[in-house]
Amino acid sequence: MLHLFALLVAASTAVLIFAGGLVTSTGSGLSVPDWPTTYGWSMFTFPIDKWVGGIFYEHTHRLIASGVGALIMGLAFWLWRAEPRRSVRRLGYLALGAVVTQGILGGITVLWFLPDAISIAHAGLAQLVFCLTISIALLTSPGWKRAYARSGSLTNTHSQPLANDQALQWVAIATTGLIYLQIIVGATMRHTGAGLAIPDFPWAFGRLVPPVWSAAIAIHFAHRVGAVLVCVLALATVAHVLYHHGRRTELRRPSFLLLALLAVQVTLGALTVLSGRDHIINSLHVVTGALVLATSLVLTLRACRPRFAGADAQTVSPGSALPKPAYVGAHA
């Protein structure tokens, strides 16, 4: 049940990121000038007939954010009460702290008229909150707990010992880190208004490299170069998985998903430019970026699964008489 709830929280966070993307894409960030109130009302009693124009996007974003905040609070509480692994409980507390900070950043950016640094930090922290919820969902999953083995410990579906493949771990970590960096560059592009600084695609002013430069063009071009680098690194990771661990379902599935999402993401990026930043396409590009990051994170964590054997043993739960799960004792 805890795992299912964690999945629900992660899915809700993805919806929240899409709603946040809509706010930026429609330029509605300041359509509700006050915070935490909404035109003087409590946000929960703000009349629905007044959800017009840009207010619709900003106000629904705030409401969804409140809901996600409450869900993460519930998740942290549940983990505190029921999760024997200290590291996973701490992830819950971290997610709670992050989502509270995220709410405050969202408020500050409204009250300070959307300063670029705060807005970019708001976008960057949103991805971290999503990553935390995804991590919790993964770490509470039955597959993770049994180390992706049908029986025994630290074995794969074919009862072979899980390879501690350090090459895979490092390339997956690098891919995930680069995707996050790419998202930050994308957020910088969005919030500095550089989304159409290069108006054509796949060329840049008809060339491979822009013939003219400005700060906006440089940020935009960096995002395009970043996309190429992400694709190269992701392909390297997937190739490594398929070549060395092709029979490990828990690695093969996210690898294929990563490729599919990357293809969708690059297409959405191109369409964002070609459509003159259509707000739906633009927001789908934002949330697909988050899904690419989450998929790469799942792949990375699964590749690093053997490293977590020690962490599983830390089941100290102060004030709790919860029994240790069976999978811990198997390899502790």
Binding site: T26, G27, S28, G29, L30, V52, G53, G54
Partner: peptide, 10 residues
């Protein structure tokens, strides 16, 4: 000039 805008009605 100083621009005025309404973010509700772009």
């Amino acid at each position: 000039m100083v621009p005025f805008k309404c973010d509700v009605h772009p």
